[in-house]
């Protein structure tokens, strides 16, 4: 098991290098030459060359990439073209906000999806099943920003329970988390339902009932544990997504997360910020993937057996 984890951690290195190169190359092609926009229209060619040297933009793509990776290993993501601030610092300032929002979002999503999905599966084709599935469909089809606005209208403006936006304490995180969580819950509900339906037909549940296990435990203990693998897969993908920031929700609720940092930086052609934030997000996502794989082993001993091979 430990060997497996070590192996996976080592595999992170080529993945990160590859992704960093892709981002680096795309930004190089797409963003144009930033030296001109920084130097201004009436800079002389000498000034431009000097500036290029100063910004570290001299040399070929490969040279610059290697230099970037070298700095990255020292924890240096460069300096923002616009704010002249250290990108790593700015990113780390935003990260806790995104982590908080992502965590609460996933709690909301799982809290809605698992009970709904189980109910739908256990009472397949009943009114409860249909209701759950209609709710899931609504959650899936409702645009995020629109649901966010509705929630603000009702809970902030009408009832005054939560602030309309900003990042003051726990109360300001509730509405964005519900907004994003609802849309994620839809897919998770459907996954839970179909995975549970598969498991509910299995013989070992009959064995459990024949032992005298209560119906509640048959479902919650014996069935759910077996149905978890696909649910965890979807959970991992969704969690990775929200770690990259939920741009729409962050915009609607003026939530200072990573998503808006990246979008704003793209608008301003702030290449170091975009590259830095994306590389860091990639790192987080690969770590989440590793964790998901480890959770698999914890849930299903057969997968664990494969890892230890």
């Amino acid at each position: 098991m430990y060997r497996y984890i070590l192996k996976r951690l080592l595999m992170l290195i080529p993945v990160l290098l590859g992704v960093a190169f892709l981002i680096f190359a795309i930004m190089d092609v797409a963003a144009g030459d930033p030296v001109y926009s920084v130097a201004g229209a009436d800079a002389t060619p000498e000034q431009i060359e000097a500036l290029r040297e100063k910004m570290g933009l001299n040399g070929s793509l490969i040279e610059r990439y290697i230099r970037y990776i070298g700095n990255l290993l020292k924890g240096d993501l460069g300096t923002s073209y616009i704010s002249k601030l250290d990108v790593m610092k700015v990113y780390l300032q935003r990260l806790p906000n995104t982590l908080k929002l992502a965590t609460l979002t996933m709690i909301v999503a799982v809290g809605m999806a698992i009970p709904l999905g189980i109910t739908a599966a256990v009472h397949q084709n009943s009114i409860r099943d249909t209701t759950s599935m209609v709710l899931a469909l609504i959650g899936l089809s409702m645009p995020n920003f629109w649901l966010g606005l509705l929630l603000i209208l009702f809970f902030s403006l009408k009832l005054g329970w939560f602030p309309t936006g900003g990042s003051e304490g726990f109360r300001s995180i509730v509405l964005p988390a519900i907004t994003v969580g609802t849309s994620l819950a839809a897919l998770l509900t459907r996954t839970t339902r179909s995975s549970m339906l598969d498991v509910l037909r299995q013989d070992y549940l009959r064995t459990a009932r024949a032992k005298g296990v209560s119906e509640r435990n048959v479902i919650q203990k014996h069935a759910l544990r077996n149905a978890l693998i696909p649910i965890i897969t979807i959970f991992g993908v969704q969690f990775s997504n929200v770690l990259g920031g939920s741009v729409l929700a962050e915009t609607v609720f003026a939530w200072p997360g990573v998503g808006r940092l990246v979008v704003d930086a793209i608008d301003q052609r702030d290449i170091p910020t975009v590259t830095g934030a994306l590389v860091m997000t990639t790192m987080l996502v690969t770590i989440v993937n590793l964790l998901v794989d480890l959770v698999y082993a914890f849930v299903d001993p057969r997968i664990k057996a494969q890892y230890t091979k």
Partner: peptide, 23 residues
């Protein structure tokens, strides 16, 4: 639930599928 497994038990036909794989 008190009767099943206590007063009456059943041995199932297919041992390959009768056991829960995760316990």
């Amino acid at each position: 639930e008190h009767v099943r497994g206590n007063d009456i038990s059943m041995i199932f036909q297919d041992p390959m599928t009768a056991l829960n794989p995760v316990f």
